[in-house]
Amino acid sequence: MPAGPITEAPRSGVDVLVGGVGQLYQGDLDLGRHAIEALAGEDLGRGVRVEDLHYGAVAVVQRLQELRPAALILVGAAQRGRAPGSVHRRSIEGVDLPPSELQRAVGEAVTGYVTVDLLIEVAFALEALPPAP
């Protein structure tokens, strides 16, 4: 029978992974990456790791499977109908989407879409989100 997943990494010791999601020169003004660049210079404490996670949801999921952080904080910009520049914090404990929508999310991710929402959906679909507290 086919082999299982190639990589099954042990826990990395990263307690909190802070990731920026965005793309250079695009309509989200690349907020995620700017945020990461700013945070990278801060002393955020032991076990906190800051990374650019803009490079596609499936690849990011594989990074999450590698690091297996206890908590994940994503920073990005999305249009929600609020005033531009509004800051909003969402707590994600799961994604309420049927399998067909999760399949669609993976399909979009591998064909080049990059958004915070898509990353969360794909990470949930492929069971890479940290466990709910």
Partner: peptide
Amino acid sequence: APRTCPRG
């Protein structure tokens, strides 16, 4: 493929 764009 399109570039990053807020959903919606």
